[in-house]
Computed example of a mutant assay.
Amino acid sequence: MRRLPPSSRTLLPRTELLGDCHSCVGLCCTVFGFSRSRDFATDKPAGTPCPHLASDFGCTIHDVLGPRGYRGCTVFDCFGAGQAVTARTPGHLTGAVFPRMKQLHEMLWYLHEAADRALDPDDVTDAADLAATITAFARLGASELLALDLDALHEQVRLLLVAVSDALRASYHSTGTPDPRLHPGAELAGRSLRGRVLCGADLRGACLIGADLRSTDLNAVDLLGADLRDARLDGADLSSALYLTGPQIAAARGDRDTLLPHRVPVPQWARQS
């Protein structure tokens, strides 16, 4: 991976990793395609504007996306890539640059947390260093950004996130026999884990669709890439869960007693309960 000299490194603040639709030209509503499903009411080919995209790039059905069949839109987050591309990229290149910028910003989201949560000082340094390098990449011109090897970059970030997770989870001493169902990529759709103490479990990439996690202690649980669609989180404690994102939480269901990490945007269900 290309690295930049320390003198040129600055870190993109976490506040710039939150989507600001008012500063974007509706890139997510144009660049990405979707198929008719329970999350989208219609088919839309990639590269074509959504029929509900207004001339000022706002959404004409924003307040009723769920009832109108566009639940997928309510749980999407570009991690601030939309406004970054809109501000710095020539219009004819935004469609190509936006998905790659989103990947960079999402990696930065995780690296911020890794730097904050790592127990090993070397991991803290590595996370901050890698985040600073990716920040520099995100500020490259369109042609340079499009030439980046993102697969290699993803692998570096993945290895670091796993190392930080392993060390942190190991610090949570579990009593009793480990549950063999709880492992990376576990198929736990619809399962009841209600009231369980799962501290330190590794549920990276797990399928938790519709799982019952009410009143469950999920502190130091690795949820990187876990599918939480319609998972019940009423009264659950995720205040120290690892690698949780806004889209994951928005796709779940909880209540005012659900404890969330302070860094994660408050979902609509928490504001309404």
Results as ranks from 00 to 15, higher is better:
residue 5 P to F: 03
residue 7 S to E: 15
residue 8 S to Y: 07
residue 11 L to Y: 07
residue 11 L to M: 07
residue 14 R to N: 00
residue 15 T to V: 12
residue 15 T to M: 02
residue 16 E to P: 01
residue 16 E to M: 09
residue 22 H to Q: 15
residue 27 L to W: 12
residue 30 T to Q: 14
residue 31 V to H: 02
residue 31 V to W: 02
residue 32 F to L: 10
residue 33 G to A: 06
residue 36 R to S: 04
residue 36 R to E: 13
residue 37 S to C: 07
residue 39 D to N: 10
residue 44 K to V: 05
residue 49 P to I: 02
residue 50 C to G: 02
residue 54 A to V: 01
residue 55 S to E: 15
residue 57 F to R: 13
residue 58 G to A: 10
residue 58 G to V: 02
residue 62 H to C: 01
residue 69 G to S: 01
residue 69 G to I: 02
residue 71 R to C: 01
residue 75 V to R: 06
residue 77 D to H: 12
residue 80 G to R: 11
residue 81 A to E: 13
residue 81 A to F: 12
residue 83 Q to E: 15
residue 86 T to D: 11
residue 86 T to I: 02
residue 87 A to M: 06
residue 93 L to I: 04
residue 94 T to Q: 15
residue 94 T to H: 04
residue 98 F to S: 03
residue 100 R to T: 11
residue 100 R to H: 11
residue 101 M to Y: 13
residue 109 W to M: 09
residue 110 Y to F: 14
residue 116 D to A: 14
residue 119 L to P: 02
residue 121 P to E: 08
residue 127 A to I: 02
residue 127 A to C: 05
residue 129 D to Y: 02
residue 130 L to D: 11
residue 136 A to M: 06
residue 138 A to G: 10
residue 141 G to C: 09
residue 142 A to M: 06
residue 145 L to E: 06
residue 147 A to S: 15
residue 147 A to W: 05
residue 149 D to E: 10
residue 150 L to K: 01
residue 152 A to V: 07
residue 153 L to T: 09
residue 160 L to H: 06
residue 162 V to K: 12
residue 163 A to P: 09
residue 164 V to Y: 03
residue 164 V to P: 14
residue 172 Y to I: 00
residue 175 T to L: 03
residue 176 G to V: 10
residue 178 P to G: 04
residue 182 L to K: 04
residue 183 H to G: 00
residue 186 A to Q: 09
residue 187 E to F: 04
residue 187 E to W: 05
residue 189 A to S: 14
residue 191 R to P: 00
residue 191 R to M: 04
residue 193 L to D: 08
residue 193 L to R: 08
residue 195 G to F: 07
residue 197 V to S: 09
residue 199 C to S: 11
residue 207 C to L: 08
residue 211 A to N: 05
residue 212 D to T: 03
residue 214 R to A: 12
residue 214 R to F: 01
residue 215 S to G: 00
residue 219 N to I: 02
residue 223 L to W: 13
residue 227 D to Q: 13
residue 228 L to D: 08
residue 230 D to W: 13
residue 232 R to W: 13
residue 238 L to M: 08
residue 240 S to C: 10
residue 245 T to N: 07
residue 248 Q to E: 10
residue 248 Q to T: 11
residue 249 I to M: 11
residue 249 I to A: 13
residue 254 G to W: 13
residue 255 D to W: 11
residue 256 R to W: 01
residue 256 R to P: 01
residue 258 T to S: 07
residue 260 L to V: 08
residue 263 R to S: 12
residue 264 V to I: 15
residue 268 Q to F: 08
residue 271 R to T: 13
residue 272 Q to F: 07
